[in-house]
Amino acid sequence: MRHPSIRAFGAIIAAAAAAGYFPPDAKADPVPVFPGMEIHQGQHLCTLGYVDPGLRVAFTAGHCRADGPVMDKDNRVIGSVATFRDNTPNGTFVHTDQQISDYESIVLTPDVVVNNVLPGGRVLQSDPGLVVTPGEPVCHFGVITGESCGTVENVNNGWFTMGHGAVSQQGDSGGPVYITNPAGSARIVGIFNSVWGTLPAAVSWQSTTQQVREDVGVHGPAM
């Protein structure tokens, strides 16, 4: 499949390298980067959501961002923030027709080893046209709670809630929400955002990929 955003992200990568955001790493062993891994940004501990091995770009929740580089659980640099959106309400009543945006794209450093395999062994694929419906089975992976599965409760404006077994804790933010198939792979449908009331919630991957394209100035077919 053609990736129209390679040129735009290529420009971001070149600018980041020129600005010195990718310091050399003297460690002999390369750092693995994969969906579902623990990441640190400033004082924030979050979960990495999706990794594109071809573009060498990763995604997590926008509210995880902070100044400085993105680190793994051992505080080794894995990349830097390229773009983000975050209008997650804090302490306010959220209407179901309110659009929630919450993503961050991370340009990975040249020396990390990248894959798109979840900790449980499933290959996590991207299909930006895929949408979920109420009652559909989904799973969520977070570094605190691991994998939990349930069903979609409600689909709102760019975000959805989950219940019936899907759980979360602080630190799971940014983790992938996905549907699985008998072949053993998975397709991402959202990035974990927060808990609304008693229900875990995620921003739609379809909405997120469209926002990414707008933010990097790419138009046309989806990534």
Rank of each mutant, 00 (worst) to 15 (best):
P110Q: 11
A166K: 00
T180V: 15
S194D: 11
H164S: 14
F141V: 03
V113H: 10
D67E: 08
G146E: 02
I188N: 04
C64V: 03
D172Q: 01
T83I: 10
N157W: 09
S168F: 08
R85P: 02
V167K: 12
S168L: 10
M71Q: 09
I191P: 02
V81N: 06
D67W: 00
S126L: 15
K73W: 06
T92S: 11
E104L: 13
V152Y: 02
D72C: 12
D111R: 01
A166N: 06
V94L: 08
T83Y: 06
E153L: 15
P134S: 06
G62H: 05
P176E: 06
V114P: 01
Q99I: 06
G91V: 07
V70A: 01
I78G: 02
D111E: 13
F160D: 00
T145R: 15
S126Q: 07
T60N: 10
N193R: 10
Q169N: 14
G197E: 00
E147V: 10
H95L: 12
G135L: 13
Q170R: 14
Y103Q: 10
S126N: 07
V143K: 03
D67Y: 00
I100D: 02
I179N: 05
F160T: 04
N156P: 13
W196E: 14
F84M: 07
T180M: 14
T151F: 08
Y50Q: 06
A166F: 09
N193Y: 01
I106R: 05
V177G: 03
A58Y: 03
V138K: 02
V117I: 14
G165A: 06
T198E: 06
G54M: 09
R76F: 13
R56S: 01
D72S: 10
T198Q: 14
P110L: 12
S168C: 15
G190R: 00
V195H: 08
R65D: 12
V177L: 13
V70N: 01
R76G: 04
V57W: 05
G91A: 12
